[in-house]
């Protein structure tokens, strides 16, 4: 009889523990999701009234309290172009070399991957500091869209290298001997067989990188500058949307409404980018399992 009683006791205790763990978890999750919901609700509530077609196309007025963010959207887009142009060959090329031309364990491969990993841990403000004095001053590019894009290239490079590398290593291993047995050169194998097969994975990396670049502010503060004019070339200074939000929030009294509208726009852009990435990922999985 004693054993029966003690077993009932343990059952009750474990049920209490179970409730306790579940309760704590539920509260933690509620706090987190509640905060996220609060942020989104506030942004929509404060920003939505300011959204209109004009907001996307019009010039800024009264230091940002009135008008739209047309020039900022164009600047942001140009910064992204300047960022992607060097970043794609550099990141994808680096990953190709690591996966196809050197052994994973070799000293040079470890040095390069270690360097890329360290680069990923450098905080964005340090990229800003480096970009300001190297691209803007030493290379003489000034506060320009080009400087901002190049600074972002340095910052987002590790994401591109890592995603491309993982896309390459998840390719079926028998493609390489198949190509080798047909007498294809490594270059042909890479461009005609491995690259097409890894393309969806590489595209995921690029979209993730674009998302990261869109969200970045600290690296752009002192590289692409604050100018709110319509940029005429990549050598002009241009204000990214994120920098615009920062400026409105910190320096412009009563800039909150337009700032939240801009934040809403930025958030929507990032959501769209994430959606593209997850669609690509779905397609990636499908192509691996079905075909």
């Amino acid at each position: 009889m004693t054993s029966l009683i003690s077993s009932r006791f343990t059952t009750r205790r474990s049920r209490v523990q179970d409730w306790l763990f579940g309760g704590i978890g539920a509260i933690a999750s509620l706090v987190t999701l509640g905060a996220l919901g609060w942020i989104l609700a506030d942004l929509v509530k404060m920003g939505l009234p300011h959204l209109s077609v004009e907001f996307f196309t019009a010039d800024m007025k009264s230091a940002g309290r009135e008008g739209g963010i047309g020039p900022m959207i164009v600047s942001t887009f140009l910064i992204l172009v300047c960022f992607l142009f060097p970043a794609i060959p550099l990141g994808v090329g680096c990953a190709f070399w690591l996966s196809e031309y050197v052994q994973g364990g070799s000293r040079i491969a470890r040095a390069v991957t270690g360097g890329v990993d360290l680069l990923a841990s450098v905080p964005s403000i340090v990229f800003g500091l480096f970009g300001m004095s190297f691209f803007c001053q030493v290379l003489g590019l000034g506060f320009s869209i080009l400087s901002g894009g190049l600074t972002l290239t340095c910052m987002v490079l590790p994401i591109l290298v890592r995603t491309t590398l993982s896309a390459m290593t998840s390719l079926p291993p028998d493609l390489r001997p198949a190509a080798g047995a047909l007498g294809l050169t490594r270059a042909t194998t890479l461009w005609q067989i491995l690259l097409p097969a890894a393309l969806p994975g590489i595209m995921i990396g690029i979209t993730l990188g674009v998302g990261r670049a869109l969200a970045e502010t600290a690296a752009l503060l002192f590289t692409s500058g604050y100018s709110t004019r319509w940029p005429e070339s990549i050598h002009d200074s241009g204000r990214a949307i994120s920098v615009h939000i920062y400026d409105l929030a910190m320096n412009i009294p009563n800039g909150g409404g337009k700032a939240s509208a801009s934040a809403l726009v930025l958030l929507l852009m990032i959501l769209a980018i994430n959606l593209v990435a997850s669609l690509l990922a779905d397609r990636c999985l499908k192509s691996q399992y079905i075909s």
């Binding site: 942020i39 942004l43 969200a215 934040a263 958030l267």
Partner: peptide
């Protein structure tokens, strides 16, 4: 979520 949006 961009840091600047959270900060704002």
């Amino acid at each position: 979520m961009p840091a600047v949006v959270l900060g704002f």
